[in-house]
Amino acid sequence: MHDSQSTTGPATTMEHEAHNPALRHHFADAQQQKNAASLGMWLFLVTEIMFFGGMFCAYLVYRLAHFNAFAAGSQQLNIWMGATNTAVLIVSSVTVVLAVKAAEAGKRKVLVGYLVVTVLLGMTFLVIKGFEYREKFEKHHVPGPTFNFTDKFDDNGKQIPVNPKEAELFFSLYFAMTGMHALHMIIGCGLFTVLAVLAWKGHYNPGYFTPIENAGLYWHLVDIIWIYLFPLLYLISRHS
Protein backbone atom coordinates (compact mmCIF):
# COMPACT_ATOMS: atom_id res chain seq x y z
CA MET A 1 0.00 0.00 0.00
CA HIS A 2 1.07 3.54 -0.50
CA ASP A 3 0.59 4.46 3.10
CA SER A 4 3.61 6.70 3.10
CA GLN A 5 2.28 8.55 0.07
CA SER A 6 -1.30 8.76 1.13
CA THR A 7 -0.29 10.65 4.22
CA THR A 8 2.35 12.86 2.62
CA GLY A 9 0.66 13.23 -0.80
CA PRO A 10 1.28 16.14 -3.14
CA ALA A 11 0.86 19.09 -0.86
CA THR A 12 -0.12 21.46 -3.64
CA THR A 13 -3.70 20.30 -3.93
CA MET A 14 -4.76 19.42 -0.44
CA GLU A 15 -2.92 21.25 2.26
CA HIS A 16 -6.11 22.71 3.66
CA GLU A 17 -7.60 19.22 3.86
CA ALA A 18 -4.55 17.64 5.44
CA HIS A 19 -6.21 17.53 8.85
CA ASN A 20 -8.93 15.15 7.66
CA PRO A 21 -7.59 11.60 8.10
CA ALA A 22 -10.55 10.06 6.21
CA LEU A 23 -9.77 11.95 2.99
CA ARG A 24 -7.94 9.71 0.56
CA HIS A 25 -5.05 11.09 -1.39
CA HIS A 26 -6.53 11.08 -4.88
CA PHE A 27 -9.56 13.22 -4.08
CA ALA A 28 -9.42 16.98 -4.23
CA ASP A 29 -11.69 17.48 -1.22
CA ALA A 30 -14.05 15.68 1.13
CA GLN A 31 -17.12 16.61 -0.90
CA GLN A 32 -15.72 14.97 -4.04
CA GLN A 33 -14.91 11.84 -2.05
CA LYS A 34 -18.41 11.72 -0.58
CA ASN A 35 -20.04 12.23 -3.99
CA ALA A 36 -17.92 9.52 -5.53
CA ALA A 37 -18.70 7.03 -2.77
CA SER A 38 -22.38 7.79 -2.98
CA LEU A 39 -22.54 7.39 -6.77
CA GLY A 40 -20.56 4.18 -6.48
CA MET A 41 -23.04 2.80 -3.96
CA TRP A 42 -26.04 3.69 -6.12
CA LEU A 43 -24.41 1.93 -9.06
CA PHE A 44 -23.77 -1.10 -6.91
CA LEU A 45 -27.45 -1.11 -5.99
CA VAL A 46 -28.27 -1.06 -9.71
CA THR A 47 -26.20 -4.21 -10.16
CA GLU A 48 -28.10 -5.79 -7.25
CA ILE A 49 -31.41 -4.96 -8.91
CA MET A 50 -30.21 -6.57 -12.14
CA PHE A 51 -29.00 -9.58 -10.14
CA PHE A 52 -32.36 -10.13 -8.45
CA GLY A 53 -34.07 -9.10 -11.69
CA GLY A 54 -33.01 -12.37 -13.30
CA MET A 55 -34.88 -14.31 -10.61
CA PHE A 56 -37.91 -12.03 -10.69
CA CYS A 57 -38.01 -12.59 -14.45
CA ALA A 58 -37.89 -16.36 -14.00
CA TYR A 59 -40.64 -16.12 -11.36
CA LEU A 60 -42.94 -14.12 -13.61
CA VAL A 61 -42.39 -16.39 -16.61
CA TYR A 62 -43.16 -19.53 -14.63
CA ARG A 63 -46.06 -18.00 -12.76
CA LEU A 64 -47.68 -17.28 -16.12
CA ALA A 65 -46.83 -20.75 -17.42
CA HIS A 66 -47.95 -22.71 -14.34
CA PHE A 67 -50.49 -20.48 -12.68
CA ASN A 68 -52.38 -23.15 -10.73
CA ALA A 69 -49.30 -24.70 -9.24
CA PHE A 70 -47.94 -21.32 -8.23
CA ALA A 71 -51.24 -20.33 -6.64
CA ALA A 72 -51.44 -23.60 -4.73
CA GLY A 73 -47.80 -23.35 -3.68
CA SER A 74 -48.25 -19.79 -2.58
CA GLN A 75 -51.09 -20.77 -0.28
CA GLN A 76 -48.78 -23.13 1.57
CA LEU A 77 -46.57 -20.27 2.66
CA ASN A 78 -46.99 -18.99 6.20
CA ILE A 79 -48.48 -15.57 5.68
CA TRP A 80 -48.16 -14.56 9.34
CA MET A 81 -44.48 -15.22 9.51
CA GLY A 82 -44.07 -13.39 6.21
CA ALA A 83 -46.07 -10.41 7.42
CA THR A 84 -44.19 -10.27 10.73
CA ASN A 85 -40.92 -10.30 8.85
CA THR A 86 -42.13 -7.49 6.61
CA ALA A 87 -42.91 -5.41 9.68
CA VAL A 88 -39.53 -6.26 11.23
CA LEU A 89 -37.73 -5.12 8.11
CA ILE A 90 -39.67 -1.87 7.83
CA VAL A 91 -38.84 -1.05 11.44
CA SER A 92 -35.20 -1.87 10.76
CA SER A 93 -35.22 0.57 7.86
CA VAL A 94 -36.44 3.24 10.26
CA THR A 95 -33.67 2.47 12.74
CA VAL A 96 -31.13 2.76 9.93
CA VAL A 97 -32.45 6.19 9.04
CA LEU A 98 -32.23 7.17 12.72
CA ALA A 99 -28.66 5.87 12.82
CA VAL A 100 -27.72 8.06 9.87
CA LYS A 101 -29.39 11.02 11.59
CA ALA A 102 -27.44 10.31 14.77
CA ALA A 103 -24.20 10.14 12.78
CA GLU A 104 -25.01 13.45 11.14
CA ALA A 105 -25.58 14.99 14.56
CA GLY A 106 -22.41 13.44 15.93
CA LYS A 107 -24.16 11.48 18.66
CA ARG A 108 -21.84 8.52 18.94
CA LYS A 109 -23.69 6.43 21.53
CA VAL A 110 -27.08 6.94 19.86
CA LEU A 111 -25.52 5.94 16.54
CA VAL A 112 -24.07 2.75 17.99
CA GLY A 113 -27.41 2.03 19.67
CA TYR A 114 -29.40 2.26 16.46
CA LEU A 115 -26.84 0.20 14.56
CA VAL A 116 -27.08 -2.53 17.18
CA VAL A 117 -30.89 -2.45 17.10
CA THR A 118 -30.75 -2.74 13.30
CA VAL A 119 -28.53 -5.80 13.53
CA LEU A 120 -30.85 -7.34 16.12
CA LEU A 121 -33.88 -6.71 13.89
CA GLY A 122 -32.02 -8.25 10.95
CA MET A 123 -31.28 -11.29 13.05
CA THR A 124 -34.92 -11.48 14.15
CA PHE A 125 -35.86 -11.61 10.49
CA LEU A 126 -33.38 -14.41 9.86
CA VAL A 127 -34.59 -16.43 12.86
CA ILE A 128 -38.21 -16.16 11.74
CA LYS A 129 -37.11 -17.10 8.22
CA GLY A 130 -35.36 -20.11 9.73
CA PHE A 131 -38.60 -21.22 11.41
CA GLU A 132 -40.36 -20.82 8.07
CA TYR A 133 -37.76 -22.97 6.33
CA ARG A 134 -38.21 -25.59 9.08
CA GLU A 135 -41.93 -25.63 8.42
CA LYS A 136 -41.28 -26.19 4.70
CA PHE A 137 -38.95 -29.02 5.60
CA GLU A 138 -41.54 -30.67 7.82
CA LYS A 139 -44.24 -30.37 5.17
CA HIS A 140 -41.87 -31.86 2.57
CA HIS A 141 -41.99 -28.69 0.55
CA VAL A 142 -38.24 -28.52 0.09
CA PRO A 143 -37.47 -29.37 -3.56
CA GLY A 144 -35.58 -32.59 -4.05
CA PRO A 145 -36.16 -36.33 -3.62
CA THR A 146 -38.34 -35.84 -0.51
CA PHE A 147 -40.60 -33.26 -2.11
CA ASN A 148 -44.26 -34.07 -1.71
CA PHE A 149 -47.10 -31.80 -2.60
CA THR A 150 -50.44 -33.24 -1.61
CA ASP A 151 -52.26 -30.11 -0.43
CA LYS A 152 -54.25 -29.30 -3.50
CA PHE A 153 -57.06 -27.40 -1.81
CA ASP A 154 -57.29 -23.67 -1.61
CA ASP A 155 -58.55 -21.74 1.41
CA ASN A 156 -62.20 -22.32 0.44
CA GLY A 157 -61.78 -26.07 0.19
CA LYS A 158 -61.94 -25.92 -3.60
CA GLN A 159 -59.69 -28.44 -5.28
CA ILE A 160 -56.96 -27.11 -7.57
CA PRO A 161 -55.50 -29.43 -10.20
CA VAL A 162 -51.77 -29.19 -9.62
CA ASN A 163 -48.81 -30.92 -11.17
CA PRO A 164 -46.44 -31.55 -8.24
CA LYS A 165 -43.44 -30.95 -10.51
CA GLU A 166 -44.70 -27.45 -11.21
CA ALA A 167 -45.32 -26.86 -7.52
CA GLU A 168 -41.76 -28.00 -6.91
CA LEU A 169 -40.66 -25.31 -9.35
CA PHE A 170 -42.53 -22.74 -7.26
CA PHE A 171 -40.71 -23.87 -4.15
CA SER A 172 -37.39 -23.93 -6.03
CA LEU A 173 -37.88 -20.29 -6.87
CA TYR A 174 -39.15 -19.56 -3.35
CA PHE A 175 -35.95 -20.95 -1.85
CA ALA A 176 -33.69 -19.40 -4.48
CA MET A 177 -35.19 -15.93 -4.04
CA THR A 178 -35.65 -15.86 -0.28
CA GLY A 179 -32.32 -17.66 0.17
CA MET A 180 -30.48 -15.07 -1.91
CA HIS A 181 -32.31 -12.36 0.01
CA ALA A 182 -31.37 -13.94 3.34
CA LEU A 183 -27.74 -14.07 2.21
CA HIS A 184 -27.90 -10.33 1.61
CA MET A 185 -29.44 -9.89 5.08
CA ILE A 186 -26.55 -11.84 6.63
CA ILE A 187 -24.04 -9.67 4.77
CA GLY A 188 -25.92 -6.56 5.93
CA CYS A 189 -25.87 -7.69 9.57
CA GLY A 190 -22.13 -8.31 9.33
CA LEU A 191 -21.64 -4.90 7.75
CA PHE A 192 -23.55 -3.09 10.48
CA THR A 193 -21.73 -5.03 13.20
CA VAL A 194 -18.40 -3.81 11.83
CA LEU A 195 -19.74 -0.27 11.49
CA ALA A 196 -21.05 -0.35 15.07
CA VAL A 197 -17.60 -1.31 16.35
CA LEU A 198 -15.96 1.41 14.26
CA ALA A 199 -18.56 3.95 15.37
CA TRP A 200 -17.93 2.97 18.99
CA LYS A 201 -14.23 3.67 18.42
CA GLY A 202 -15.15 7.11 17.09
CA HIS A 203 -14.33 6.68 13.41
CA TYR A 204 -17.26 8.81 12.31
CA ASN A 205 -18.06 12.44 12.87
CA PRO A 206 -20.53 14.92 11.37
CA GLY A 207 -17.96 15.64 8.64
CA TYR A 208 -17.45 12.01 7.70
CA PHE A 209 -20.05 9.27 7.98
CA THR A 210 -20.28 8.09 4.36
CA PRO A 211 -19.94 4.38 5.23
CA ILE A 212 -22.99 4.62 7.53
CA GLU A 213 -25.00 6.30 4.78
CA ASN A 214 -23.94 3.82 2.12
CA ALA A 215 -24.55 0.77 4.30
CA GLY A 216 -27.96 2.31 5.00
CA LEU A 217 -28.64 2.51 1.26
CA TYR A 218 -27.72 -1.15 0.92
CA TRP A 219 -30.03 -2.09 3.80
CA HIS A 220 -32.91 -0.16 2.28
CA LEU A 221 -32.43 -1.95 -1.02
CA VAL A 222 -32.46 -5.36 0.68
CA ASP A 223 -35.68 -4.26 2.42
CA ILE A 224 -37.23 -3.12 -0.84
CA ILE A 225 -36.44 -6.46 -2.46
CA TRP A 226 -38.35 -8.12 0.38
CA ILE A 227 -41.20 -5.65 -0.10
CA TYR A 228 -41.51 -7.10 -3.62
CA LEU A 229 -40.87 -10.70 -2.63
CA PHE A 230 -43.57 -10.73 0.04
CA PRO A 231 -46.56 -9.94 -2.20
CA LEU A 232 -45.20 -11.93 -5.14
CA LEU A 233 -44.64 -15.09 -3.14
CA TYR A 234 -47.20 -14.86 -0.35
CA LEU A 235 -50.02 -12.54 -1.31
CA ILE A 236 -51.04 -12.22 -4.94
CA SER A 237 -52.47 -15.73 -5.26
CA ARG A 238 -54.57 -15.48 -2.11
CA HIS A 239 -57.47 -13.38 -3.26
CA SER A 240 -60.70 -15.39 -3.19
Partner: peptide, 19 residues
Protein backbone atom coordinates in the same frame (compact mmCIF):
# COMPACT_ATOMS: atom_id res chain seq x y z
CA UNK B 1 -25.26 -9.31 -12.71
CA UNK B 2 -27.79 -11.05 -14.93
CA UNK B 3 -25.32 -13.64 -16.16
CA UNK B 4 -24.15 -13.99 -12.56
CA UNK B 5 -27.61 -14.96 -11.32
CA UNK B 6 -28.08 -17.19 -14.38
CA UNK B 7 -24.92 -19.09 -13.51
CA UNK B 8 -26.07 -19.32 -9.87
CA UNK B 9 -29.36 -20.83 -11.02
CA UNK B 10 -27.56 -23.35 -13.24
CA UNK B 11 -25.28 -24.31 -10.36
CA UNK B 12 -28.18 -24.58 -7.92
CA UNK B 13 -30.15 -26.66 -10.40
CA UNK B 14 -27.20 -28.98 -10.91
CA UNK B 15 -26.34 -29.32 -7.23
CA UNK B 16 -29.86 -29.67 -5.80
CA UNK B 17 -31.63 -31.10 -8.86
CA UNK B 18 -34.13 -28.30 -9.07
CA UNK B 19 -36.08 -27.86 -12.28
Amino acid sequence: PVVAITIVLVAVERLFHLG
